[in-house]
């Protein structure tokens, strides 16, 4: 008797194992795998439209061979890597500090939580348009404030390296809430008693943070960092309205190059090749990063 019940429940468990994963797999198979295959196929073709019909010509690796000579791709890759590095580092540090502080204070938590999340609620297109006005050298509120403090103003978007920095500032402003929210949720699920025990043991706040909180936060930290990295590689909205990639190629970023080549210039084959290469490089970065994180986790 006991045995058949067990077998029945094992069968039920097997069924549920499948049922619970199936919806996610279905979504990925239908809406993700198909476009990826499509992208890869396009990247080895030239696609032209004649008499209302598409003509696909197989060109092999031609598009990939062209990539290294493309000024915009080169600038886009370099800028995107630098952008991701600086912006994501700043966001992780600031976001973690804010989350940690908010989780440790007694008064004003709800207020801070709400305020810190505001930027992520705004549509990217509005953020771009409004910051562009705020950066305006003649009438912008930022220079007005600087003048009020007796400081000289800047032409924030006018010259290369400053424009790059200005775009990063907007990104940090926009995306730190993402880090803040996830890390705060992570901090809130940490068992409260461990923190209290550490404090009772007389550990300094810093020791407690280093030896207890951060190690326990590693999974969520890694996950947040991975996602921020990925999303920062796709940065588009802010650049689109703030600088359009200029002046020169100072703020050209990869997703913008893809948009231009793929859509504006209607070069679906070539644009797909840039996407595929970007995917490949980014996957490499993430795999290396995950490997490192895993080794770190095992070390602990």
């Amino acid at each position: 008797m006991r045995g058949t019940a067990d077998r029945a429940s094992a069968k039920a468990a097997d069924r549920w194992r499948f049922y619970t994963l199936a919806p996610a797999l279905a979504v990925y198979l239908l809406l993700a795998l198909l476009p990826i295959v499509n992208l890869a196929t396009m990247s080895v073709h030239d696609i032209h439209w004649q008499q209302g019909a598409a003509r696909w010509t197989l060109v092999g690796m031609k598009h990939y061979a062209e990539l290294p000579r493309d000024v915009l791709v080169r600038a886009g890759l370099a800028n995107t890597a630098l952008f991701a590095l600086i912006a994501v580092t700043a966001e992780m540090l600031i976001g973690f500090a804010l989350a940690l502080f908010v989780s440790r204070i007694a008064v004003g938590r709800v207020l801070y939580r709400t305020i810190f999340l505001l930027p992520i609620l705004l549509p990217g297109i509005v953020i771009g348009a409004i910051w562009k006005l705020m950066y305006n050298p003649d009438f912008g509120v930022i220079n007005q404030l600087l003048h009020l403090l007796g400081l000289p103003g800047f032409d924030w978007l006018g010259s290369g390296s400053l424009a790059f920095l200005s775009v990063i500032i907007v990104d940090v402003w926009h995306w730190t809430p993402f880090v803040f929210l996830l890390l705060l949720a992570g901090l809130e699920t940490l068992p409260q008693d461990i923190h209290e025990a550490a404090m009772l043991d007389g550990a300094s706040a810093w020791q407690e943070l280093r030896d207890v909180t951060i190690p326990m936060m590693v999974p969520i930290l890694v996950m947040t960092l991975a996602f921020r990295l990925i999303v920062s590689f796709k940065v588009f909205d802010e650049v689109y309205l703030l600088t359009g990639g200029g002046p020169g190629t100072a703020t050209e970023v990869l997703s913008f190059t893809i948009y231009r080549r793929f859509f504006t210039e209607d070069r679906m084959g070539y644009g797909s090749a840039i996407s595929v290469i970007a995917l490949f490089l980014l996957t490499l970065v993430i795999v290396l990063f995950m490997g490192m994180a895993r080794r770190r986790m095992h070390a602990h």
Binding site: K132, N136, P137, D138, F139, D155, L157, G158, S159, A163, T243, G244, G246, P247, G248
Partner: peptide
């Protein structure tokens, strides 16, 4: 203006509208 290389269409029209 000081940085003509960063003036897009919107900035040009803005300069006209503000009398600049």
């Amino acid at each position: 203006p000081p940085n003509p290389g960063s003036y897009g269409q919107a900035q040009v029209i803005q300069a006209l509208l503000t009398g600049k």
